[in-house]
Amino acid sequence: MRRLVLRRLAMSVPLLLVVSAVTFIMIAFLPGDAARVVAGKQATAAQVAQVREQLGLDRPLWEQYVTWLGGALHGDLGTSLVNKQSVTEQLVSRLEPTLSLITCATLLAAVVGIAFGILGARGGALGRLVDGLSVLGLAVPTFWLALILVVVFAVRLGLLPPLGYTSFQDSPTGWLLGLVLPALTLAVPATAAIAKQARDAVADAMARPFVRTLRAAGVPERSIILRHALKNAAVPVLTVVGLAFIGALSGAIAIEYVFAFPGLGGTAVEATAAGDLPLIQGVVIFLTVIVIVVNLLVDIAYGYFNPKVRVG
């Protein structure tokens, strides 16, 4: 298992370098002038040129990237052009809301999706119902669903807060209540995908010869499903769960905007609108690191359920 982890970590280093370099180049070709943003709309051409020199934007692109990379290796992702604050400090403070939202949504989707998948694996009308709900869940637009949930549960029923985020340290109850609607919104399409994959994987495992042997030995059906079939179906299900977590990162951009969450998604929207290039670069790096960590955890889970992966 240690070799598996070290191998995945070694592969992550060039991935981070490539992503950071490509992002840096793409940001450099975005329309607009970062020096103009800092100097202000009323600044003269001479003032803009002076700001460009102070920011180092007059240097070759490769030199700017090397300078940025040197700071990034020491945890310094630069300074925001808009509020002059450290990009690293800003993003660290925005990390908790995003991770709370995505983690809760993924856990909810995994639990409900696997449960529906196990029920649907028995076939018949229940299996068709799971398939139908999966298609419906994938077809529903998350932005529209978020607005409907706010109108029903926050505005009309008054059961849940419609906007904002409460830190867990400030109020665990407020933290949980504030996450219900956005997490449920993100969980719906992920639940549908996980349920469909779990249904197919468990049904395939239940059709294997070892299941007939266990039944002949008098092992209860519930034990066969939970202890044997589900374990054999774990690898494809884990793949979808990992993809659901990563997919929730992109979905969080719209959901955080709807529910006024101070997370990485909302920060990305604000930074793009303001032309805050260092902050955009920092958001991309943070999201890439999250994806790498999630993939590493999924690979470790693969190694637990499938020993062949450990030596692959």
Rank of each mutant, 00 (worst) to 15 (best):
D58C: 10
L149I: 03
R212N: 12
V18F: 02
P31L: 10
L296M: 06
V112Q: 03
S250P: 02
A190N: 01
I292D: 09
K84M: 08
V92N: 03
T272H: 09
E96C: 05
I27A: 10
V241A: 13
M206D: 06
Q281Y: 11
R94Q: 02
L119S: 11
W175Q: 07
F29H: 13
A207D: 14
Q54V: 06
D170F: 12
L107T: 03
H228R: 00
A183T: 08
G137N: 02
G247M: 01
N295Q: 13
L73R: 06
F245P: 07
A260E: 09
E221R: 08
E270S: 15
A109Q: 10
G78C: 10
F261W: 15
H228Q: 00
R199V: 12
E221G: 08
K41L: 15
L69K: 05
G158R: 02
P161R: 06
V235S: 14
D170K: 10
D131A: 10
L243H: 11
L160D: 01
I246N: 08
A35C: 00
A154Q: 05
S20A: 09
C104T: 09
P182A: 05
T67M: 01
F168D: 07
D170S: 15
L129I: 12
T272M: 11
T213N: 10
A217Y: 04
K84C: 01
G303A: 03
V150L: 15
E256K: 04
G265Q: 04
D299C: 06
I25V: 15
K308T: 02
V293W: 05
A274W: 03
S223V: 09
P172T: 13
A105F: 13
D33T: 01
I118W: 09
L277E: 11
G75L: 00
A10H: 09
E89D: 14
A187L: 03
D131T: 12
N295G: 12
V18S: 03
P262N: 08
L9E: 13
C104G: 02
A49D: 12
R36A: 11
R52K: 11
L243W: 14
A110E: 05
V235Y: 05
L163N: 04
N306K: 01
A35Q: 02
A154T: 06
G113K: 08
L55W: 00
L91T: 01
L297I: 12
V180E: 04
V202P: 04
E221Y: 04
Q50G: 09
G117N: 01
I25G: 04
Q54D: 11
G120T: 13
G275I: 07
L73F: 14
Q64K: 02
